[in-house]
Design a protein around this nucleic acid. Structure first.
Lengths: 215, 215
DNA sequence: ATTTTTGTCAGGGAAACCCCTAATGACTCC
DNA sequence: GGAGTCATTAGGGGTTTCCCTGACAAAAAT
């Protein structure tokens, strides 16, 4: 048979029992092992070769984040679902950077945890609904900054191209104006923001959401 | 009393009845109105003054996205929860940009929808778990590209500063080398990548994760 | 052992950039 | 209706930066 294999990594005995019981109720997978520290998780990942590891963040020794990093380094095919009580933005980002495919809070209800496990096993990503708001700053908070931004629409347009590395000539061609116009805009921008170095302008443009990686 | 007021905007009669029934079961809020087009939603938002609008995306006339934009423009305090069958990345991003506070798929189970409404009413954001993976591209997929990067460590370092808008002189001071050295590195980078325009280098640096908006 | 890559530097000319000045239209404020 | 502010558009002249062509030694690859 080919039921997915799940490994648990958590040092909270009581919770562990609960999770074990809960996951056992569903006949879609089987629990192949339980560990209670980050080191054990790394060591046993190769032995039991699970499809998914339910990983706590706060564990003795190396935490769940570092364990995730090491496991994903050696065995990229193993999916890792963080199960933690930390609802801070920082932990979520670190977990994702370490290679986790999902993030669920321990206050989640049974159906949510099962749904998360199922989702991650399918190769998708599951982020606890209220946590995902951390991931799109810049999407919604654009307008709040506009009030404080002393630049005109045209100036912001110019700044955007400047920050993206366009030369004044290129910007001029893009906006169908003279190079001199672009230079003036840039001068006024530098003056208003009191930033003379181009690198400062780039940082400002990024902070204002004028340029965005997620296009 | 001050129960939160909820308004429904959807043109699917059957589904509407279901949602109405489902939300009525919970005694935490009351449904104050039902509309079946984007225009109606905008018009009635001020009349009924709901705390939350459950909004479909595909509706006659202006869709739910545009309706959301107009409502948030005039009445920023009204929370909007998108309820749609579209699971595409583009719709999620557009909805968030328009000002939606939540995004739930119609295939969600009852508890999820109730949880979403509750979350959004509390002022938080609720994103359907499997949808949020669209929001953090660049977090996880950084290393995959690094292998193909033909640049040396020093060159990548220089490129980073170039992309951040530093001048050669500034980079030289930063790295304690001659300006001419920096210029040579930049020339090699342009040569290797076949990119002569600075803006292209910025884009490349971003795509390689050499510079990151998320600090 | 020889070729290639890497890191370091220079000179000269071209291009980009910066500072100062300024005209025009739009807008507000008496 | 004028006076002032601001946005947008430019030009002249000087300065900095950038690009191209070389160069050479150390390290790495072959």
């Amino acid at each position: 048979m080919d039921k997915p294999k799940i490994m648990l990594a958590d040092d909270h005995g009581v919770l562990l029992s609960g999770i074990q019981l809960l996951l056992s109720k569903v006949d879609e997978w089987e629990i192949v092992g339980i560990v209670s520290s980050g080191e054990e998780a790394v060591e046993n990942a190769s032995l039991w070769d699970p499809d998914l590891i339910l990983m706590d963040i706060s564990m003795p020794g190396i935490g769940g984040i570092e364990a995730t990093r090491q496991i994903k380094e050696k065995f990229p095919h193993i999916k890792i679902l963080m199960l933690t009580m930390f609802s801070e933005e920082d932990y979520l980002k670190k977990a994702l950077k370490a290679g986790a495919s999902g993030y669920v809070l321990k206050k989640a209800v049974d159906t949510e945890l099962i749904s998360a496990v199922r989702t991650v096993l399918q190769g998708e990503t599951y982020i606890y609904p209220t946590m995902s708001s951390f991931l799109f700053k810049g999407f919604t908070e654009e307008k709040k900054d506009k009030d404080e931004c002393p630049l005109s629409a045209r100036e912001k347009e110019v700044l955007k191209y400047v920050a993206l590395g366009f030369t004044y000539q290129e910007i001029a061609d893009e906006l169908f104006v003279s190079v001199k116009t672009v230079e003036t805009h840039k001068a006024r921008i530098s003056d208003k923001l009191n930033m003379k170095k181009r690198s400062e302008l780039v940082r400002y443009a990024v902070s204002q959401g004028l340029i965005s990686i997620n296009e």
